[in-house]
Design a binder for these strands. Structure first.
Length: 211
DNA sequence: AGATCGATTCCCT
DNA sequence: GGGAATCGATCTG
């Protein structure tokens, strides 16, 4: 899919984009080689212009800051943030420019460059653990500070949406989101059933994402 | 200027 | 199941 088409595909509410991202393949090419991950778990973070009231769980909830700047930009870019003093996590920016929406990439299955991914993730005991969890996924793909704002145009990062919308998508509360944003009103974590790469933490009973 | 705590992971029990 | 590691963005005074 060319970049222009991808941008159009991302130009929607993140709660609609997130389940559609399941099965998509994100690849990152570096001088070391290429690693590709098939997404199995994502979370939606809704910005200010995409809905009547903003998402209390989002980094952009309190407005524009240097850290969340990229989220306010156009879709088709990576929003990468640093957390717990040691981890990076990656989002796909979606929705129109000015909306500050994104989808956090929580887990996936390595489908390309597995040896390189293993070398970056020596702590992983099983291949299913290589990109199980957002910081692990970022490490397997070597996503770091410098990749904040990177374009998904295929130069270094490429995002290929799935040929068909995934069936049987499950949803539940988002992980690590405290307060209102973590309540049953925000079942914006989406994952594929039966995937060993989906992170273990389950905050509540999963339910079908679409009726 | 100082305190707080996080969209986490790993290792130990 | 629990605690440590580790640092910078954001908030408070």
């Amino acid at each position: 899919m060319d970049f222009e088409t991808l941008v159009r595909w991302l130009l929607r509410d993140p709660v609609a984009v997130a389940p559609d991202l399941l099965g998509a393949v994100l690849t990152h090419t570096t001088p070391e080689g290429t690693v590709g991950v098939r997404l199995t778990e994502v979370e939606a973070y809704r910005g200010h212009r995409d809905s009547d009231h903003p998402d209390p769980g989002s980094h952009s909830y309190n407005g524009r800051t240097p850290r969340n700047e990229v989220m306010w930009g156009p879709p088709g870019h990576l929003y990468v943030y640093f957390t717990y003093g040691m981890h990076f996590c990656a989002n796909v920016v979606c929705g129109p420019a000015g909306s500050s929406s994104g989808c956090l990439l929580r887990a996936g299955e390595i489908v390309e460059g597995i040896d390189l991914a293993r070398s970056r993730r020596s702590a992983a005991r099983r291949d299913a653990d290589l990109a199980r969890g957002p910081a692990r996924l970022a490490q397997a793909l070597s996503i770091g500070r410098d990749d904040n704002g990177a374009t998904l145009d295929g130069a270094s990062f490429r995002l290929e949406p799935p040929a068909h919308r995934a069936a049987g998508v499950l949803s539940g509360p988002r992980v690590g989101v405290a307060g209102e944003g973590g309540s049953a009103d925000y079942l914006w974590r989406f994952w594929l059933p039966g995937e060993p790469s989906v992170s273990t933490y389950r905050a509540a009973k999963p339910r079908p994402a679409r009726g």
